[in-house]
Design a protein around this nucleic acid. Sequence first.
DNA 1: GTATCCAAAATTGGCGCCAATTTAGGATAC
DNA 2: GTATCCTAAATTGGCGCCAATTTTGGATAC
Lengths: 211, 211
Amino acid sequence: MADIMIDSEQGTSDGRDVTDLVLQDILAGVLLPGTWLKQIDLERRYKCTRPEVRRALDRLAQKRLVEHVPNRGYHVYEPDGRRAREVSEIRIILETAIAGTIVQNASPEDIAALRGLAEHFDFMVLNGTMLELYEANLAFHRQLLVLGGNQEMVDLITEVRQRTSSAPVSQWRTRARVDQSSREHHQMIDAIEAGDTERLKDLVRQHILQG
Amino acid sequence: MADIMIDSEQGTSDGRDVTDLVLQDILAGVLLPGTWLKQIDLERRYKCTRPEVRRALDRLAQKRLVEHVPNRGYHVYEPDGRRAREVSEIRIILETAIAGTIVQNASPEDIAALRGLAEHFDFMVLNGTMLELYEANLAFHRQLLVLGGNQEMVDLITEVRQRTSSAPVSQWRTRARVDQSSREHHQMIDAIEAGDTERLKDLVRQHILQG
DNA sequence: GTATCCAAAATTGGCGCCAATTTAGGATAC
DNA sequence: GTATCCTAAATTGGCGCCAATTTTGGATAC
């Protein structure tokens, strides 16, 4: 079993549990696809106990972000093109289906809030870490989806996005890709403001397929 | 904490893990909404160890079928009308979105297989336990969804259906409801055979809203 | 240099145990 | 009869430990 030494360490004292911390490191590209996650290494890395590590790994395995191999341990799943395509298809279906409701529901305050989040993303492009960028993107999209009025769908899409290793490092490989994401956020808001459901659908579709 | 004595017991020797067994009992209405699931009771019921119980409960909590209350334990979630409606909406969106692909992809062999599963459901109406009926229904719907060509969606919908306490006992309260489900299965197959996508969509919508 | 074997080291898996917390029931007061 | 308090019993939470399994690296043979 390959022995990957992990340098930086984070404790669990900030109220986030180990599952979140491991997930962050997967999404940030620190724990690369294929990496074996040794329980004793994770204990040291995240300054936590073995049972906490085990629970986190089991949860991530249930979400299929990591795979459990009995007696050998857990490793980060390799990217799977089929899964990524299928997830994108699901997202397009769901997110375009609620476009009309979003347009209908959006108040001026909602639109202002979305603008704020889109601008926060822009700020993070220039000033933030990759993870901060990812979280700003997620915050924007959650806020957008909330306008669809189906909380289960918001949670489901948020969760489904994590199912593939569409880590930030692979999602935004170039500055041009990041800038396109940024433009599309603003264009989505414009479409909502203009009450243009079809335009919003097109933008959502394009945005998801870009990633 | 209410003390619910559970009579029947099942071991884990048949290869299914405790998570599945608990889930079955929730779906079968044996473990009712609101029931506190005491770890030591589950150990006895399923003839397994505490760590196995804990893992199962954590997994079910992650799926939001049970709620974890720190230091008090886990209880089965009460039915939530909002969640059930939202889940139905999600299912309608997804399952009607792939209706066209299902119609396109279905070979005569596929249609025959679906007929077999629909007939199996009919058989279970007359001869099976509630749980067997539930599983026959699930098998039919999975097979139907597989024709949509998106494996992630099949798994997702299967999982999402479990998110609400749409237990068999509540889904099919009357024989009339069961019979309607049975008729609709066959009508869906007829629509697929006839290449009638719109008809299939209507039936899927009606079927989901009925439950 | 490559293949095989073996023993030590490393790691996983899971059990037992007990501290921490909650519940239940009896005693007491009003 | 109801409310409050207290204590024992019950239960949860989590740690330590060690058996089981795998990996690693050195020795040996070809």
